[in-house]
Protein backbone atom coordinates (compact mmCIF):
# COMPACT_ATOMS: atom_id res chain seq x y z
CA UNK A 1 0.00 0.00 0.00
CA UNK A 2 1.32 3.41 -0.88
CA UNK A 3 1.61 6.07 1.69
CA UNK A 4 -0.29 9.27 1.11
CA UNK A 5 2.98 11.08 0.47
CA UNK A 6 3.99 8.63 -2.24
CA UNK A 7 0.58 8.87 -3.81
CA UNK A 8 0.79 12.64 -3.91
CA UNK A 9 4.25 12.51 -5.43
CA UNK A 10 3.16 10.02 -8.07
CA UNK A 11 0.09 12.08 -8.80
CA UNK A 12 2.21 15.16 -9.38
CA UNK A 13 4.59 13.19 -11.57
CA UNK A 14 1.75 11.84 -13.66
CA UNK A 15 0.23 15.30 -14.01
CA UNK A 16 3.56 16.72 -15.10
CA UNK A 17 4.02 13.92 -17.58
CA UNK A 18 0.59 14.42 -19.04
CA UNK A 19 1.15 18.16 -19.32
CA UNK A 20 4.48 17.56 -21.05
CA UNK A 21 2.98 15.12 -23.51
CA UNK A 22 0.22 17.57 -24.31
CA UNK A 23 -2.27 14.84 -23.58
CA UNK A 24 -5.71 16.29 -24.23
CA UNK A 25 -7.19 15.04 -21.01
CA UNK A 26 -9.35 18.09 -20.46
CA UNK A 27 -10.12 18.72 -24.10
CA UNK A 28 -13.21 16.63 -23.50
CA UNK A 29 -16.09 19.10 -23.42
CA UNK A 30 -18.56 18.44 -20.67
CA UNK A 31 -21.87 17.74 -22.36
CA UNK A 32 -23.91 20.26 -20.41
CA UNK A 33 -27.04 19.92 -22.53
CA UNK A 34 -27.26 16.21 -21.98
CA UNK A 35 -26.79 16.51 -18.24
CA UNK A 36 -29.40 19.27 -17.94
CA UNK A 37 -32.01 17.37 -19.93
CA UNK A 38 -35.28 16.73 -18.12
CA UNK A 39 -36.42 13.74 -20.13
CA UNK A 40 -34.82 10.56 -21.43
CA UNK A 41 -35.38 11.43 -25.09
CA UNK A 42 -33.93 14.92 -24.64
CA UNK A 43 -30.84 13.53 -22.94
CA UNK A 44 -30.27 10.91 -25.62
CA UNK A 45 -30.66 13.48 -28.34
CA UNK A 46 -28.18 15.81 -26.65
CA UNK A 47 -25.76 12.91 -26.32
CA UNK A 48 -25.94 12.29 -30.06
CA UNK A 49 -28.29 9.31 -30.17
CA UNK A 50 -31.38 8.74 -32.27
CA UNK A 51 -34.69 7.07 -31.49
CA UNK A 52 -34.69 4.64 -28.59
CA UNK A 53 -34.97 0.96 -29.39
CA UNK A 54 -35.23 -1.70 -26.71
CA UNK A 55 -32.46 -4.29 -26.91
CA UNK A 56 -31.79 -7.13 -24.52
CA UNK A 57 -28.06 -7.08 -25.20
CA UNK A 58 -27.75 -3.88 -23.24
CA UNK A 59 -27.73 -4.97 -19.63
CA UNK A 60 -28.66 -2.84 -16.69
CA UNK A 61 -27.77 -4.10 -13.24
CA UNK A 62 -29.42 -2.62 -10.21
CA UNK A 63 -31.47 -3.59 -7.19
CA UNK A 64 -35.24 -4.14 -7.34
CA UNK A 65 -35.63 -2.20 -4.15
CA UNK A 66 -33.16 0.40 -2.95
CA UNK A 67 -33.43 1.05 0.75
CA UNK A 68 -31.43 4.22 0.49
CA UNK A 69 -31.98 6.42 -2.55
CA UNK A 70 -28.75 8.27 -1.85
CA UNK A 71 -26.66 5.26 -2.83
CA UNK A 72 -28.13 3.03 -5.51
CA UNK A 73 -25.61 0.71 -7.16
CA UNK A 74 -26.22 0.76 -10.90
CA UNK A 75 -24.23 -0.86 -13.63
CA UNK A 76 -24.38 -0.94 -17.40
CA UNK A 77 -22.78 -3.47 -19.69
CA UNK A 78 -23.13 -4.87 -23.18
CA UNK A 79 -21.56 -7.43 -25.50
CA UNK A 80 -22.47 -5.52 -28.64
CA UNK A 81 -19.72 -4.17 -30.82
CA UNK A 82 -19.69 -0.67 -32.22
CA UNK A 83 -20.84 0.95 -29.01
CA UNK A 84 -19.71 4.55 -28.59
CA UNK A 85 -21.16 5.54 -25.24
CA UNK A 86 -22.90 3.80 -22.38
CA UNK A 87 -25.32 5.91 -20.38
CA UNK A 88 -27.19 5.47 -17.14
CA UNK A 89 -30.38 7.49 -16.73
CA UNK A 90 -32.99 7.73 -13.99
CA UNK A 91 -36.33 8.79 -15.43
CA UNK A 92 -37.75 10.63 -12.43
CA UNK A 93 -34.64 12.46 -11.30
CA UNK A 94 -34.70 16.25 -11.84
CA UNK A 95 -31.95 15.79 -14.41
CA UNK A 96 -32.26 12.36 -15.89
CA UNK A 97 -28.69 11.63 -16.98
CA UNK A 98 -26.51 10.14 -14.27
CA UNK A 99 -23.34 9.09 -16.04
CA UNK A 100 -21.94 8.67 -19.51
CA UNK A 101 -19.03 6.33 -20.19
CA UNK A 102 -17.05 6.42 -23.41
CA UNK A 103 -16.38 2.95 -24.72
CA UNK A 104 -13.12 2.11 -26.49
CA UNK A 105 -11.01 -0.93 -27.26
CA UNK A 106 -8.99 -0.71 -24.07
CA UNK A 107 -11.84 -1.26 -21.62
CA UNK A 108 -14.68 -3.71 -21.31
CA UNK A 109 -18.10 -2.23 -21.99
CA UNK A 110 -19.01 -2.82 -18.39
CA UNK A 111 -19.16 -0.02 -15.85
CA UNK A 112 -20.61 0.25 -12.41
CA UNK A 113 -21.21 3.21 -10.19
CA UNK A 114 -23.61 4.44 -7.53
CA UNK A 115 -26.36 6.94 -8.17
CA UNK A 116 -28.78 9.08 -6.22
CA UNK A 117 -32.48 8.59 -6.83
CA UNK A 118 -35.13 10.98 -5.56
CA UNK A 119 -37.96 8.47 -5.80
CA UNK A 120 -38.91 5.11 -7.29
CA UNK A 121 -38.38 5.29 -11.00
CA UNK A 122 -37.50 3.44 -14.15
CA UNK A 123 -33.75 3.31 -14.67
CA UNK A 124 -32.45 3.18 -18.23
CA UNK A 125 -29.21 1.79 -19.55
CA UNK A 126 -28.60 3.18 -23.02
CA UNK A 127 -25.91 2.24 -25.51
CA UNK A 128 -25.30 4.85 -28.16
CA UNK A 129 -23.85 3.09 -31.18
CA UNK A 130 -21.26 4.47 -33.56
CA UNK A 131 -23.99 4.74 -36.20
CA UNK A 132 -26.20 6.81 -33.90
CA UNK A 133 -28.68 4.13 -32.85
CA UNK A 134 -29.70 4.27 -29.21
CA UNK A 135 -30.38 0.85 -27.72
CA UNK A 136 -31.76 0.58 -24.23
CA UNK A 137 -33.02 -1.65 -21.52
CA UNK A 138 -34.81 -0.50 -18.43
CA UNK A 139 -35.71 -1.66 -14.99
CA UNK A 140 -37.86 -0.25 -12.25
CA UNK A 141 -36.05 0.46 -9.02
CA UNK A 142 -38.19 1.13 -5.97
CA UNK A 143 -36.77 3.56 -3.49
CA UNK A 144 -37.95 3.38 0.08
CA UNK A 145 -35.98 6.39 1.29
CA UNK A 146 -35.36 9.28 -1.12
CA UNK A 147 -31.89 10.57 -1.92
CA UNK A 148 -32.82 14.24 -1.65
CA UNK A 149 -33.42 14.62 2.04
CA UNK A 150 -36.97 13.28 1.60
Amino acid sequence: MNTRRDTLKQGAAVAALLAAAGYPQYALAFNKNAFEAKSITEAIKAAGGGALVENKDVVLTGPDIAENGAVVPLGVSTNLSGVKDLLILVEKNPNVLVAMFKVNDAVDANFMTRAKMGQSSDVYAVAIMADGRALYSKKEVKVTLGGCGG
Binding site: A34, V90, L97, V98, T113, R114, K116
Partner: peptide, 13 residues
Protein backbone atom coordinates in the same frame (compact mmCIF):
# COMPACT_ATOMS: atom_id res chain seq x y z
CA UNK B 1 -5.67 6.73 -21.69
CA UNK B 2 -8.24 3.97 -21.41
CA UNK B 3 -11.39 5.48 -19.99
CA UNK B 4 -13.24 8.74 -20.10
CA UNK B 5 -16.56 9.31 -18.46
CA UNK B 6 -18.80 12.27 -17.80
CA UNK B 7 -20.87 12.37 -14.67
CA UNK B 8 -23.83 14.41 -13.57
CA UNK B 9 -24.78 15.50 -10.07
CA UNK B 10 -26.89 12.37 -9.62
CA UNK B 11 -23.85 10.22 -8.97
CA UNK B 12 -23.81 9.39 -5.26
CA UNK B 13 -21.67 11.14 -2.68
Amino acid sequence: PVLTAEWGPAVAK
